[in-house]
Amino acid sequence: MTTLQDHPVSGGQSLPQLPVARPDNVWRRFRRASPFALIYSAAILIFYTIIFIIPFGTGIWLAFQNWDFITTPKFVGLRNFGRAFTDQYFWWALQKTLLFSVVEIALGLTLALLFALALSQILGKWQNIYLSLYYLPVITPLVVSLYLWRWLYRPTGGAFNTLLSSVGLPEQPFLASPQQALWAITAVIIWAHLGTGIVLFLAGINDVPESLFEAARLDGAGFWQSFFKITMPLIRPVLVYQMVVSVIGTVQMFEAFFLIPGPGFSTRTLALYTYELGFRALNLGYGAAVSLIIFVMLLGATVFQLRRWQIQWEH
């Protein structure tokens, strides 16, 4: 720290003691703070204690117990975590979760980017009309979409099979088949979430200054070249944001696998497994342990993605 004594201007002379404000102590600063801010802070602290700190603490504590809501909890050490690694249902659920998540994000983001790119080519009124149409599935309650699609997916008499047989293709079992159910659900979710990505990416693309494209065109760059060299780098923050959010969203996707499940365990993901452990099997300790594993995985995935694509969050 620079003191007055070694300050270059004062040349090392000793200067008369200047009146300096006494360092504030915490109490004084509290007294000076406005009651409005303090009351709000107290409220928000109480809220997050009840809604976050206590449940999170309870969750960690619970992961080391055996409890079924009725008997007294019994400490079992790391057994719940150990069990997860030997439990084939856990591995199946993890596998379904990863398959769903990866395919949903890869296909969903690619499609959204293509749609946004196409939409950016038309301007004015029609852009908004198309945008609204693509956004409709997003605002529709997911429960509605799921039951609607289950109806369209019916093996006999469903709209999709009617469509398939009318063009001479074999009918498919869709949700009734262990092989197809996961992908049938993935398609619903891609459809339901596509609008979000399109709106975000389009806002990003529309923000790229037109002069950059103009300059690229003068230099002889084609459409795709200017897309990969100009648009993509400039909207990268949006892409990374959407990817991070999608990972968190898809891993936690619950309704789809709960309401229109495929046969057996073919669509039981970690989210559904956690719910069933907690509220069906009443194996709260193990459920808490699985949900903590999900937390650690998501945290790792998020940190990895932000590091990998070098995005700093500005506060």
Binding site: Y48, Q252, L284, I294, L298
Partner: peptide, 24 residues
Amino acid sequence: YLFYFVLSTTMVPFLTLLIPLYIV
């Protein structure tokens, strides 16, 4: 500190809080 605490709560997925929040 309070602000960053509030912000950091979003890092914990809702699924992790589901069972203990139900108990609370």
